[in-house]
Design a protein around this nucleic acid. Structure first.
Length: 289
DNA sequence: GCCCAGGGAATCG
DNA sequence: CGATTCCATGGG
């Protein structure tokens, strides 16, 4: 990986990058804060910034940004210091996973903002991805600050000014009361989202599960996508059906049993394997009736 | 009209 | 306890 700076145009150019596909990384279901503008051209909003990304094979351009922002934010956000080649080569040897890993080559696990990720996955429950994205977009445009080229996701303090009825204007439906409960816990400092990041996975999970509307699945998504707990294996309806087809001869299993089976089998890389499976299953309707 | 969606809480038996 | 029902909303 080679990084070049185009200071005149506020642009970062990454060359010779392996195992990084911008489109797959954003569209594999882990994040909802982006918009596809053209093929291999995306608009992302995070950390109160809008970032445009354009990819041509093993070259990725990000703009507008500074060297400082790239080093302090985007390098970690896109997990660019992790060697995905090693992970890819490990699971490509597994006959069951091979086609899924090949299909998902280039997916990276983002390190998202904790607050936004938590609210996003509360909204995700019993919902569809396009609808989730609409809600997140509504939140930013109506409750957040205007920023260069777009709108930032609202802060806890900004969301706290909205009533449950007002939140429902975003079409989050019955989840509005859950979002309200979560927001109050954060602004009242009952829940210290940043501080708990240094705790072991089980302790972070325990804190997250205190929020109404957060169960095991949502907690695992937040652990994986925001707290960088890469050994977490969230089990949703797609993962459940796919895992039953791949490893249990199509026979129905309990959610808990699937999670335990996967985390034991895939270990410290459970999260990325989960994302390969989720992306393949959804794009190819694996296990769908 | 019926079914389901990156589930979870409330209620029932 | 485990199993069932309800929850808003929108698209197929």
């Amino acid at each position: 990986m080679k990084i070049e700076w185009d200071n005149k145009n506020n642009k970062i150019i990454i060359k010779d990058i392996k195992n990084f596909n911008v489109g797959k990384t954003l569209e594999c279901g882990q994040a909802f804060n982006f918009e596809k503008l053209e093929e291999d051209y995306y608009k992302l909003t995070a950390f109160k910034r809008v970032l445009f990304l354009r990819q041509d094979k093993d070259k990725v351009e990000m703009f507008p940004t500074t060297e400082e922002d790239f080093n302090n934010i985007w390098l970690e956000y896109f997990d660019l210091n992790t060697d995905y080649d090693a992970i890819y080569n490990k699971f490509i040897k597994d006959d069951v996973l091979k086609p899924l890993v090949e299909y998902g080559e280039g997916i990276r696990i983002l390190k998202q903002e904790k607050w936004e990720c938590l609210i996003s996955f509360i909204i995700s429950q019993n919902n569809r991805i396009p609808q989730i994205k609409k809600c997140i977009n509504y939140f930013a445009e109506n409750y957040g600050d205007q920023i260069e080229n777009g709108y930032a996701f609202p802060t806890p303090e900004q969301l706290a000014t909205k009533s449950i009825e007002q939140l429902q204007e975003s079409k989050v439906g019955f989840r509005a009361k859950y979002i309200n409960d979560c927001t109050l816990k954060v602004v009242n400092k009952e829940l210290l989202l940043e501080e708990i990041g240094s705790l072991p996975r089980e302790d972070v999970a325990k804190e997250l599960l205190k929020i109404k509307g957060v169960g095991v699945k949502v907690a695992n998504c937040v652990l994986l996508f925001a707290y960088a707990k890469a050994d977490a294996f969230p089990v949703d309806v797609w993962i459940k059906r796919a895992m039953e087809v791949l490893y249990f001869d199509g026979k129905e299993q309990k959610l808990e049993d699937i999670q335990n089976f996967a985390e034991e089998k895939f270990g410290e890389y459970s999260g990325i394997v989960q994302q390969y499976i989720f992306y393949y299953a959804r794009e190819n309707e694996l296990g769908k009736k």
